[in-house]
């Protein structure tokens, strides 16, 4: 009862971005979408989150067409960590994380005790508690990214979408946040849909990989089934060797230079 996409197409003006794409995404799974630049990964996220409307085909969430949900309903169902961007206004870190509670707080009401508790908890989890009072406009790219990540966690939604959410982080924070995310998939039955460039990281943390190319899905399935040299060759046009690495406990890829 997660997402069900059937024959979805979408164009930016004349240019087709998504072509007749079909997929089923179930709760309790960590999906990672990989593919070359411009293959339609971000548009795919925008479509299933209802931010863009498909030109053709249907997208259902929990058995109901996505355009039947109001924005408010959707914000209680799915949270998004967008690609890193600059914020011009000097909101404090704790204010930004509190924004993740807005979907649960009535328009003119102050945050309740439970909201404050959740905000503090996610700031602790993401390691940003000590910069609660700093301004988001003054943070480094990685610190800002962790703040936005914490905001999405504060939303407490069944679905979490990560759009290259770890691209600006150092490896310690990447592993910390992705462990946190994978943990919530197992314990809270969350659906995670991530877009990542790093296939080795994707293989370490994901249950399933979705390979996209030219707006369509080339291969989709459990990591061990679809992470193969042939598919990497087909999608990225690079030669690679795929092997099982006991240290990461996952399939890994080595590329030919």
């Amino acid at each position: 009862m997660g997402f069900c996409l059937e024959d979805v197409s979408f164009s930016h003006g004349e240019k087709p971005v998504i072509r007749r794409l079909s997929a089923d995404l179930r709760p309790g799974r960590f999906y990672t979408v990989v593919g070359p630049n411009g293959s339609g990964k971000t548009t795919f996220l925008d479509l299933i989150s209802g931010h863009l409307k498909p030109d053709a085909g249907s997208i259902q969430y929990k058995g109901v067409s996505i355009d039947r949900y109001s924005r408010k309903d959707l914000s209680r169902e799915m949270a998004l960590v967008p690609q890193n961007y600059h914020i011009n206004f000097p909101f404090s870190v704790s204010e930004v994380v509190m924004m993740g509670r807005y979907p649960h707080i009535p328009r003119f009401a102050p945050p309740a005790a439970v909201d404050l508790r959740i905000v503090e908890a996610v700031m602790e989890m993401t390691g940003i508690l000590e910069m609660a009072d700093r301004y988001i406009s003054e943070l480094s790219g990685g610190e800002r990214q962790r703040t936005v990540f914490a905001r999405a966690l504060a939303q407490r939604t069944p679905v979490l979408m990560l759009d290259e959410a770890t691209a600006n982080l150092d490896i310690r924070h990447i592993i910390r946040l992705l462990n946190l995310t994978a943990e919530s998939v197992r314990t809270e039955n969350k659906t995670v849909i991530a877009v990542m460039q790093d296939i080795n990281l994707a293989a370490m943390f994901s249950d399933e990989l979705v390979f996209m190319k030219d707006g369509g899905i080339v291969a989709h399935g459990p990591v061990d089934a679809v992470l193969t040299p042939d598919i990497i060759q087909e999608v990225f046009s690079v030669s690679a060797r795929v092997y099982f690495e006991p240290y990461t406990d996952a399939r890994q890829v080595a590329y030919k230079r």
Binding site: D46, N88, F89, M99, G100
Partner: peptide, 24 residues
């Protein structure tokens, strides 16, 4: 004033605002 909270979210970008429940 009615839209002040939504405006806070809009000032962070429309994709962010939409994901936080604003009909942008």
């Amino acid at each position: 004033l009615f839209f002040a909270r939504d405006l806070n979210l809009m000032s962070l970008g429309s994709r962010t605002a939409a994901s936080l429940g604003v009909d942008t």
